[in-house]
Nucleic acid binder design. Structure first.
Lengths: 288, 288
DNA sequence: GTTCCGCATGAATCGATAG
DNA sequence: ACTATCGATTCATGCGGAA
């Protein structure tokens, strides 16, 4: 197990420990998780390898064995999550033999038996989904974002993600992507809090449980399936500054970057060295 | 069991029997379905009463007994559906005790055991969802449109639902829905097939499995929960002219109207006399 | 005949109150 | 304690009336 820690001063903290730490860890998450204390994480956001994906890494989890593979991990996640914390699981069942496989439904059932509450199911509506054409199926342009909690009473900071009234997705995405480019050089970036301030004066509304976000395809080094807006949105919604965010399947580092920029501590675990290095590289680049 | 049949000549049919029939039937669908021959229906589109809804009618199906209540019906539906036919089930689980209930997942599992294939899950993204604010939950703005089939090889006419490409399409579609309503009395209406013909010359794209449609809210006589675009879309996608569409929970007649306008035969079953009469009224008004 | 504004209206959910 | 009912909350939409 190798740990790489990136630190910065949290200007807004009044605590003695006023540093924000991003820990990037190389290792199998099942092992690494066992070293994380109980109730110490405020938010878990992750997009685990899908069934039959990333074969080289996890030995090719077949759809039929997906639940069996994931349950020991979710058990550890349940342990490390704080009482009022939230677990967001990005997942989508694949088509097997012309039919949608039921491992996601089985997983929800099994996790409920483990003690998780299945609080909500958000939809990630991908505007630019994977192209293609099949005789009996249209392109799949949505994924599940399953919300699990330990108890009914969890932390939720709804005001942090309010959006202008009307067609919020369009306006928001447009502003966001434009600002995103400009902000590339600005070191102070804290998500798109800045943009929201531009909207003051307009009336704000609470969003719904459907998130319309485009996938990021323009990344040269690695195609981030998970757009940064996703962890940003959930981090703002379910944590406050100084909290800790965990991603047991970090990939190229998106979750950690989002957390770091929003002044949240983070723990990112990645089993593959190539991605581990890439994640460190990416997070260092993002903070300038 | 009372049957009301509305007929019209199918101008495009070359068959000897060139009439299109819309049968509206008053009765419990479980009884009525038993009189429908095997493999005689090409598409089933329905939106059954949700758990704990419409108590007066179905005796208030509790979420815990929902599967048990629905399975005998789905068994009949499996029998009457043609080999290459499709069953579209509109459903959404409600929140019970702070948690999403799992009766929908249990239903899918149980229907698979009955012999159904769970081919796909479309998302109906409702733009105007029910308002409200809660401390731990956002507004629910999507519903499931579960697609079931008898076999992997089913009829699907993808070209019938193609839409113009690009952002331009959005504007166009918006205008469309507004115009559509004004044209409520137009006798020729066959969904927005007419409009598609206006788009000839434009580049067309296949849609995805996310449908963005608003609920029709302020209908004077009775609010149709199911926007007409929904059965229109699925009827065009999964049937051809002269085929038969079935809705065992007809409500105010939306499915039958869509089928009739698209030159498909239809069977609509409704248990409540009030709705039955309303459906007949609505379909007669639609055809002028 | 247009466009603009105001209004009623929902496949809901939570928390409190009452039996 | 556990269930049943009720009020409060909130926003996209179509309709009707007015300029």
């Amino acid at each position: 197990m190798t740990i790489n820690t990136i630190e910065k001063i949290n200007l807004f903290s009044s605590k003695a420990e006023n540093k924000i730490k991003a820990n990037i860890i190389l290792g199998d998450c099942l092992d690494v998780l066992k070293n994380i204390p109980d109730n110490s994480v405020d938010l878990i956001v992750t997009s685990p390898p899908y069934a039959d994906q990333r074969k080289s890494t996890y030995g090719g989890i077949s759809p039929d064995k997906y639940v069996e593979w994931f349950l020991p991990i979710s058990k550890e996640l349940l342990r490390v999550l704080s009482k009022k914390g939230t677990f967001i699981l990005n997942i989508k069942e694949k088509v097997v033999n012309g039919e949608r496989h039921i491992y996601v439904m089985e997983l929800i059932t099994a996790m409920r038996k483990q003690g998780w509450l299945w609080t909500e199911e958000f939809i990630w509506h991908k505007k630019n989904c994977f192209p293609g054409k099949w005789p009996n199926r249209f392109r799949d342009s949505w994924e599940r974002l399953l919300q699990f909690n330990k108890q009914k009473d969890f932390n939720m900071y709804q005001d942090e993600v309010r959006v202008p009234m009307g067609d919020w997705a369009k306006v928001r995405l447009k502003n966001l992507s434009e600002t995103d480019k400009k902000r590339d050089n600005s070191k102070v970036g804290s998500g798109f809090g800045k943009n929201v301030s531009n909207w003051l004066g307009r009336e704000l509304a609470y969003p719904t449980n459907v998130l319309m976000m485009a996938t990021e395809s323009s990344n040269k080094n690695h195609s981030a399936v998970f757009p940064k807006e996703l962890p940003i949105w959930f981090t703002k919604l379910f944590t406050k500054s100084g909290d800790t965010v965990l991603d047991p399947f970090l990939g190229s580092g998106t979750t950690s970057i989002a957390a770091f920029q929003l002044d949240r501590n983070s723990i990112g675990i990645e089993i593959q060295e190539e991605y581990y290095k890439l994640a460190i590289e990416n997070i260092n680049r993002e903070i300038g």
